[in-house]
């Protein structure tokens, strides 16, 4: 169907998109790569273009790097656990026959559309605040000592905020997957005498496994670059400094560009490892 003529026209139509993305990827990334081998600290007017792998060595061996990796893993892992388990349960619940299903869906999906800075601030002040937050009222109403979430359990607090934002995403995608399950399969299992729990274990869960994998991969990629929620709540203090945040601080706060760039490259490499798995799944589904 496609002639030679339409082929070359097609190439011209794709060219602008490819070009801008190529520029966007290559130029800044090459600059980061370049800086990562330099001792560049503008505040002290230091610029030495080649110091080998020193930045990488000092970034990787610093305790803050290891801490940040641990923090990142805890944060991402915690959020993933909550959103996947919660998402599967919510998806199964929303798939049940009920009144006002559309409205419930809207209520559940809403948090995803809340601006990250808004949700961070609302949770920080109106829920977690030790003096005036709702949780403190609830604690004192139950006769307990109010708990200062953000200073005593900062990592947990941020996990709650972000999980609240991403639970709708997981729910929505898993609900799509649940609804694509052939009901005859479930009925066949019922005829075969499988109780509800076994049907979940042997039919629903395997059917959802693909969707769960996709949710995990996509969320991981987005969650690795959580920024606003930390920026607004703890500013990286109290053990909430993730790798992303550490690089941000090295680059923009302490203005150690060389060190920060080395950290940036490491972050890119780590994200790419996750991305490869995601791209495989997407690629398989493309045809």
């Amino acid at each position: 169907m496609a002639t030679q003529h339409s082929r070359s026209a097609a190439r011209w139509m794709i060219a602008p998109a490819v070009f801008v993305l190529l520029v966007w990827m290559l130029i800044p990334l090459c600059m980061t790569l370049y800086f990562s081998f330099a001792d560049y600290r503008p505040m002290r007017a230091t610029f030495e273009p080649w110091i080998g792998f020193d930045n990488y060595v000092s970034f990787l061996t610093s305790s803050s790097f290891l801490d940040s990796v641990v923090t990142t893993l805890q944060m991402v892992g915690g959020i993933l656990c909550i959103t996947i388990v919660g998402g599967v349960l919510m998806a199964l619940l929303l798939d049940k026959p009920m009144f006002g299903q559309g409205v419930v869906r809207i209520l559940v999906i809403a948090p995803f559309f809340v601006m990250p800075t808004v949700s961070a601030l609302v949770w920080k002040n109106m829920f977690f605040n030790v003096d005036n937050g709702l949780f403190s009222y609830a604690y004192s109403a139950l006769g307990l000592q109010p708990f200062d979430f953000l200073s005593q359990a900062p990592l947990f607090s941020i996990i709650v905020i972000v999980a609240w934002q991403w639970l709708p995403f997981a729910t929505l995608i898993l609900l799509t997957a649940v609804q694509s399950l052939d009901s005859e399969q479930l009925e066949a299992a019922e005829m075969d005498g499988a109780p509800a729990l076994s049907r979940f274990r042997y039919i629903i869960l395997p059917h959802l496994s693909r969707a769960i994998t996709v949710v995990i991969l996509i969320q991981t990629i987005f969650l690795l670059s959580i920024f606003a929620e930390i920026f607004v709540t703890t500013n990286g203090a109290f053990g909430t400094r993730t790798l992303t945040y550490l690089v941000y601080q090295r680059v923009l706060e302490s203005q150690n560009i060389g060190l920060g760039s080395a950290g940036g490259i490491i972050a890119v490499i780590l994200a790419n490892i996750v991305a490869i798995f995601l791209m495989r799944i997407v690629g398989k589904n493309l045809d």
Partner: peptide, 12 residues
Amino acid sequence: TKMLPAVGVLYP
């Protein structure tokens, strides 16, 4: 390209 972490290109 969507999966490139933003901090990787922040300073440039």
